[in-house]
Nucleic acid binder design. Structure first.
Lengths: 387, 387
DNA sequence: TTGAAAGCGCTAACAA
DNA sequence: TTGTTAGCGCTTTCAA
């Protein structure tokens, strides 16, 4: 017998009601109350109705925490993602129109995960990193879910290492970080293939030969992979390609893209080319490419006539800018869905399966900024796009 | 003394480690382990390090459930939203380009809530309704969060009634459902004002006089409010406006919008007008308006030359279609942020504050489909928009 | 600064 | 079909 609860059932001491209260009020045991919620059919209808009535009257809501604790599962999957906002775009005047059109990675992944999670009866807990939180982000999430996905480089590797020993974790995008983490499932996107194909397109289909690549940090795995794709395509075509990107940006923001474009233009010497002018600027992501479009417009450089510009990612904004941005589209939504599938399977039958490593294919999207496409806009309901 | 745990600390029986394991391994009490995570400064540094080392070695992660249970709080806020996917758009071939551009309400709200929640140190739990789940959606969410927001008409009123007695709930969009729920905080959007202003624009600025309004279900409060705004503007201008929308759509999808446009055209008699032709079709949401644009194009009716078309919501897709859709933009992101602010405040100082009822202002966005705007697209980086 | 002990509200055997 | 009971892993007084 548990100690008498410090509350008289009739005498207005409002604590949140528990199974005990419902049980007492409906004249059954707490086990029966529990059954009514977990497995209604295992309780006689008459009884069940009495219990539900009591619950209603008391305002009873089962405690997820208590349930989770007792049953060792939460019915929740998690997602940790970095604070991905582009400082350029994230102005104080929040609801600008650009902002609206600006749907990031994480939104797509969230959509994908939410949808898949729902299909499997899970809810989704999302949390973005915020530097200097008291406890590490992961810990907060990890303690509340049955398994979770992490966007690469969101959380310290060591934290992940500890946590992934206790529950399923799938790493999204970016290559395996290190051998420490090789027991994680892992889904990546074909960055190298995509950039190679896009570069090939510029070289072979548009006949461009003087290309430059603007990359990201050395430790940004996606940007690095894209650069490798670029190198490969150049070399395959017999064009020179250095060991390093022509330029590197730290945050890969629009502002940096604009600066890069300026620098590239200045580098060649202002105006008519003594050193032959660049024919194509390839950026490691769409944000930079869009910033570059702005900068080029300001300087009166025509795209794609004077120079072709390409990005990578396939963010919606890339389609709204003029000229529309040629890019490589990442299947972020699918990434989220696959992540959930992997988690669910590992929580079920495949508890001890070997870690998998999926590579999702990407699409080259040819728009106006590389010299493709450019149908008249009027009468076209879906936005011009060349195959 | 609790019963001996059925696990030898040295003898490979891998259970997930608990405070007890960490305590034992580091030679302290479980209380101290707990302190290390909750309030590190209250533990001597030497001790703390020993505890953390042990935790690391064991792969210890605090159980969110146990913590929540013991401390009666979760550090999580929730959002329940309906399964809002437009069946027309949600084809099996998931990653179509339209789909990409199609960012719903819920995404915006999620963004807003996530951001605000993060600022306050909360994580966000999201769950969409799925008909026929075993337990009601709310119950699942409600038990795991400190407070949550619900999109109007996502969950049965009675469930909300019970739950909102136990934890803070804020209702988003749509008017108060009933007097039962008048202890909930509530945030709505100025549907009526927005539609009134948009309608006034068509009448006064474009000189249109033969308007029709395509609404939603009678029980869809937003659509109803919009219709009222339409009525008011018509009457203010001395134009006739019936007691009912000219047409109602059940799901307010693109397909229904297309059908509505067809019906409206057929109603007037095919071809040259015996009964004077409609000059403007106003739809209760963007989805329908976009469907209508398709239908009109198929029939060779020019927009806005032959007929003006408007929507409501401000979804990104509305900007991509041609002609770009004139609409009223809802501040969904802000809706999410305000919701979190309300919840956080009610969880803090304002526990017993009177329920509030916020009304967020909207913007009329004038684009080409009403006859406004239409700047050349080339060289315009942000997409044409008239003030 | 640390420890002992009593729950937090529920589930899950096992009995009846 | 229903009841009994022993935890689930943590926080939290209260003492030391």
């Amino acid at each position: 017998m548990r100690f008498q609860r410090s509350r008289e059932t009739g005498g207005r001491v409002s604590t949140t009601p528990t199974v005990y209260d419902v049980a007492e009020r409906s004249g059954v045991s707490i086990a029966t109350v529990s059954r009514v919620y977990r497995n209604p059919d295992s309780v006689r209808e008459k009884t069940r109705e009495r219990v539900l009535a009591a619950a209603r009257e008391l305002g009873y809501v089962p405690s997820g925490n208590a349930r989770g604790l007792a049953s060792r599962s939460t019915g929740v999957l998690g997602l940790c993602f970095p604070d991905y906002s582009d400082p350029d775009t994230e102005t104080e005047a929040a609801d600008t129109d650009d902002d609206h059109a600006f749907m990031l990675y994480s939104d797509q992944i969230i959509r994908g995960m939410e949808r898949a999670a729902r299909r499997h009866g899970y809810a989704l807990l999302i949390a973005a990193s915020l530097k200097g939180g008291p406890e590490s982000l992961v810990a907060k999430v990890a303690g509340r879910v049955d398994g979770f996905a992490v966007l690469a480089r969101t959380v310290p590797t060591e934290d992940l290492d500890v946590i992934s020993r206790r529950l399923p974790v799938v790493m999204l995008a970016g290559p395996r970080e290190s051998d420490h983490l090789d027991h994680l499932d892992h889904i990546e996107v074909a960055n190298e293939d995509g950039q190679r194909e896009l570069t090939r397109h510029l070289i072979e289909d548009h006949g461009l030969r003087r290309l430059v690549f603007v990359g990201g940090e050395e430790r940004a795995p996606d940007a690095q992979a894209r650069f490798r794709g670029y190198q490969e395509a150049c070399r395959a075509a017999g064009l020179p390609a250095g060991e390093e990107p022509d330029l590197r940006a730290e945050m890969m923001t629009q502002a940096e893209g604009a600066r890069a474009a300026d620098a590239l233009l200045d580098r060649a010497g202002p105006g008519d080319g003594a050193s032959a002018p660049v024919q194509a600027m390839l950026f490691a992501n769409d944000q930079m490419a869009i910033g570059a479009l702005h900068a080029l417009e300001r300087r009166g450089v025509r795209v794609p006539d004077d120079v072709a510009v390409t990005g990578f990612d396939g963010i919606p904004l890339g389609r709204l800018v003029r000229p529309a941005l040629t890019t490589v589209r990442q299947p972020m939504r699918q990434l989220g869905e696959e992540a959930v599938e992997l988690l669910v399977r590992r929580l079920g039958e495949e508890r001890d399966r070997e870690p998998v490593d999926l590579m999702l294919p990407v699409d080259v999207v040819r728009r106006a900024s590389c010299g493709c496409a450019g149908r008249p806009a009027h009468g076209d309901l879906s936005g011009a796009e060349a195959g």
